[in-house]
Design a protein around this nucleic acid. Structure first.
Length: 427
DNA sequence: TCTGGGGTCCTAGGACCC
DNA sequence: TCTGGGGTCCTAGGACCC
């Protein structure tokens, strides 16, 4: 008999908050939230903050009273730190299965097929990560990815299961009871809009969704919804993908710390974002064939103050050269800039990406000019990598970034910056 | 005063071709 | 004058995820 497929989903609890606590144990037991870029809204909450009533994604200015009332600690996000902790955790997890798919910064799937006692293996994982990385995780196990996600949600909510939950160990009846008690919005891939539409046709629980008619749901919704129902029924439609496919686009954008009015400031911002995007492009060993630039006012502004425009440029020759990309981006920006608006955000997007190994020189492009550009970019990237970000930059990026984001509560880069290594004091 | 950023996939609709 | 319909490709926008 063929072995039954099984997946485990390992997900860190309150990941960003857990990372902050590693280096600042005083945060243990206290309500803590981590904020998005620009200190805009809440992106991670400790259990104490959840209990205090802080909702996910809420803007900071709406919870000033709650913060005072409960003494909630607010922290700016520190992505260099979270990325570093994530890498450590993922490399530990790699040892627990022949196949791992890293799904996001704080979660991965492991192939659990053929593991006799999934629950025991899950508990071992949980214990090991806590011990070696200091971060609490939960483990969900099931015969499909969608069910493993659901199992992980149960592991997080339930107090009895000790952070590990296996749907494939349930009887049919137990499984249906679990489905009947869960709202359909708990299912991976069913977001706010779909919940609205599903409820309108009388589907409220996971069980009702699971029991619905496949053909009808495909017709009413989409092939994705149909596939999700199949997965809930135990028919695996989503396989493990161990090698992350190459990115198809690279986006770099930021909200400004204060409104921006002048073209000159926007040009600096767009040049800076493009330099960031181009660095990622070179790290991927890709070339961009096209790029987009967008600028927008605050989307909550009055209708007469709203403006949002995108310009797309197709490049004659695909490139990874920051200088060329910045030039193209700035000329695109000049086409869409309109004076008189309070701009709140700008960004660039690299599109039509191809592998550098498949570069084709056009008639008008000499090998010499390409290799000169390569040398300059290599020098710039190497310098910035050893001497620190921003050591070498393009003149267009400018110096006085009046528009730069706010980051008022940022923790030090404990693990990724020599200057900010924590100091251990002997008692 | 103050509302994130970076991705993916799917669909609808227009352009174009035969 | 009469002016189809199916296929494909591309793009913009929406929905979703973390």
């Amino acid at each position: 008999m063929a072995e039954a497929e099984r997946f485990a989903l390992i997900d860190c609890n309150n990941f960003y908050v857990s990372c902050e606590r590693l280096f600042n144990p005083k945060l243990e037991g206290r309500p803590v939230v981590v904020l998005s870029n620009n200190d805009g809204c809440v992106v991670s909450r400790s259990s104490e903050a959840k209990e205090a009533g802080v909702k996910m994604g809420v803007p900071l200015f709406k919870i000033t009273d709650l913060i005072k009332q409960h003494g909630i600690v607010t922290l700016s996000s520190n992505y260099a730190l979270y990325g570093d902790i994530s890498e450590r955790i993922m490399s530990i997890l790699r040892n627990f299965s022949p196949s791992q798919e890293i799904y996001s910064i704080d979660e991965c799937f492991l192939d659990f097929s053929g593991i006799a006692d999934g629950l025991a293996h899950g508990r071992l994982i949980r214990q090991t990560i806590k011990q070696q990385a200091g971060v609490p995780v939960c483990v969900g196990i099931a015969s499909t990815k969608t069910l493993a996600k659901l199992a992980n949600g149960t592991a997080k909510k339930s107090t009895e299961c000790g952070g590990v939950f296996d749907i494939s160990a349930l009887t049919d009846r137990q499984r249906l009871e679990l489905f009947a008690a869960a709202p359909v919005g708990d299912v991976w891939g069913i977001g706010r809009k779909l919940v609205e539409r599903l409820e309108a046709i009388g589907v409220h629980t996971v069980k009702e969704f699971h029991d619905s008619d496949l053909d009808k749901m495909k017709e009413l919704f989409s092939v994705v919804v149909e596939r999700t129902i199949r997965e809930l029924r135990g028919q695996s439609c989503l396989a493990m993908t161990e090698i992350a496919p190459v990115r198809k686009q690279i986006l770099s954008s930021r909200s400004f710390g204060t409104y921006v009015y002048e073209l000159g400031d926007l040009e600096q911002a767009v040049a800076t974002y493009m330099a960031t995007a181009a660095l990622k492009l070179r790290a991927d060993e890709s070339l961009a064939g096209a790029l987009q630039v967008f600028i927008k006012t605050n989307r909550y502004a009055a209708p007469e103050d709203l403006y949002s425009q995108t310009a797309t440029v197709t490049l004659k020759n695909p490139t990874d050269d920051s200088i060329q990309l910045v030039k193209a981006a700035i000329s695109a920006l000049r086409q869409i800039y309109k004076k008189g608006y309070a701009y709140q955000k700008a960004g660039v997007c690299l599109l039509d990406l191809s592998s550098i190994n498949e570069r084709q020189l056009s008639l008008f492009q000499s090998e010499a000019s390409v290799s000169r550009s390569e040398k300059i970019m290599k020098l710039m990237d190497a310098t910035n990598s050893t001497m620190g970000r921003g050591t070498l930059y393009l003149a267009a990026e400018g110096q006085n970034h009046r528009w730069q984001i706010k980051s008022n509560f940022k923790s030090p880069e404990y693990t990724t910056s020599w200057k900010e290594l924590p100091i251990a004091h002997a008692k």
